[in-house]
């Protein structure tokens, strides 16, 4: 089972790979357009794979996607 620091590290690596931009856990990845909504299906798939359970898509809010810190708190696995 993946720890929360590893979950965050995987997300940071994925975002940089997608965008070519190095990000921190507090970079506003969607507000600054490092990522766009079109990337969300892939991001959700990645997070589901890392935590090993589905994410309830009926229950998503735009604020869940503020930054990696918010994503890890909302969807990540606890260490």
């Amino acid at each position: 089972m993946l720890s929360e620091p590893d979950f965050r590290a995987e997300l940071r690596a994925w975002v940089s790979e997608k965008s070519g931009v190095e990000v921190t856990d507090h970079s506003p990845i969607f507000a600054d357009r490092t990522l766009r909504s079109v990337h969300i299906p892939e991001l959700l798939l990645l997070m589901e794979r890392l935590r090993g359970t589905p994410i309830d898509v009926e229950d998503l809010r735009p604020t869940d996607f503020r930054d990696i810190d918010t994503l890890a708190t909302r969807f990540g696995v606890r260490s």
Partner: peptide, 11 residues
């Protein structure tokens, strides 16, 4: 099946 499409920043 559910869709994973979601919109946060429809600029």
């Amino acid at each position: 099946y559910r869709s994973r499409q979601f919109s946060v920043n429809e600029e």
